[in-house]
Design a protein around this nucleic acid. Structure first.
Lengths: 148, 148
DNA sequence: CTCATTATTGATACTTGATATCAATTAGGC
DNA sequence: GCCTAATTGATATCAAGTATCAATAATGAG
C-alpha cells in the first residue's frame, strides 16, 4: 500500500471482536484486556496461565478470532509455539530478540520495493511475504557486557 | 534463478552426516537417499510415512542432524508442521506456493543491502533474518484458469 | 576373525500445543 | 421475564515431537 507512511490501525481488541459480529462477553473482555496490558508478545499458553479463570478453549478461540480480525499478528517461532503481538501498523515486519524473545515492529519502504523487483525473478505470482529480523536487543546487549 | 553469485554447497546428505562425526548406518542412508530423491520440500511426518522401515525417532533425529549440519533448511509453516528442503545455496530465501505448497529457493542482493540499511532503524544488533515469499506458482496459475 | 566398546536404533510412553465435543450457561432482543 | 442463539469450559482427543532404554549394529584393537 503506502510506502513511507505508517498507517496506524484499530488497537481496541474488544471492538475488533465486536466488528466481527461477536458478542462482548466476560471471557473475551478478560482476554482482550490482558493482551492489551502486556505490552510484550506472548504465547497462547502464557495467556492461559495468566487467565486461569478463562478456559483454555476460549483463550485459544479468542486469539484465533483476533488474528482473523487482523488485530493480532501470529509469528512463527521455529522451535516452539507461535507468538502473538498486537498489530499496530498496517503492514509491517518483526524483530525478535534471540536472547530474551522481545518482539518489535518495523516498516521499511525498501521491503516493498524489493518485492516488486523480485517479481521478475520468481516463477509465479507473489501473493504475500513474511520477514523476521533476529536481533540482540539493546537491553540484552547492555546486560551481557561482562557476563555470560 | 538467482542473481549475483549463488554459491552451491554440499548436497550429499550422507557425507554431511559423516562430517559431523556420525556413523553411516542403514537407517541414516535410507533417510538421506529418500530426501535426495524427493525433489520437493517435505515434513517429518511425510518422511516417516515414506520410510516405514525406519523408526520415527530415527527419522526425526536424522532430520535434526541434517539441519544442524546446515544441509537442510527448516521452514516455519504457520498452521502446520515445519517443512524441510535441501540447502543448495549458501544463503537464500524461500518461495512457498500457497496452493500446492511447493518450495523454491532464491537469492537476491537487495536483501543483504536491506539488512544493512535496516541496521540504523533497529534498536539492537542484527544477528540474522528470515524471509519467505508466498506465491501462486506457475503450475497452479495455469491449472486454475477456469476453475475455482 | 572375535571380542569389547560405543553409537545407534526403534518400540513405547510421554509431553506439549491445540482442537472437537457437548451439556450447561449467558447475552441480547422482544 | 422469556426465548433463542451464541458462548463457555471441562473433558477427551489429536498431532507433532521428544525421552527412555533394552536390543542391536558399527568400529577398532588384538
Amino acid at each position: 500500500m503506502a510506502s513511507g507512511i505508517a498507517i496506524t490501525v484499530e488497537v481496541d481488541l474488544i471492538t475488533a471482536l465486536e466488528d466481527q459480529g461477536l458478542r462482548r462477553t466476560y471471557a473475551r473482555s478478560a482476554v482482550a484486556t490482558r493482551i492489551e496490558s502486556v505490552s510484550e508478545a506472548f504465547t497462547a499458553e502464557q495467556l492461559c496461565r495468566d487467565l486461569p479463570e478463562v478456559g483454555r478453549a476460549t483463550v485459544y478461540r479468542t486469539i484465533r478470532h483476533l488474528v482473523d480480525a487482523g488485530a493480532l499478528c501470529k509469528l512463527p517461532i521455529l522451535d516452539g509455539a507461535p507468538m502473538y503481538s498486537i498489530a499496530r501498523v498496517e503492514h509491517h515486519h518483526h524483530t525478535i530478540c534471540s536472547k530474551c524473545g522481545a518482539v518489535g515492529e518495523f516498516r521499511h519502504s525498501t521491503v516493498e520495493r524489493l518485492m516488486r523487483s523480485l517479481e521478475k525473478e520468481i516463477d509465479g505470482e507473489i501473493v504475500g511475504h513474511r520477514m523476521e529480523i533476529f536481533i540482540t536487543c539493546n537491553q540484552c546487549l547492555s546486560s551481557t557486557n561482562g557476563g555470560e
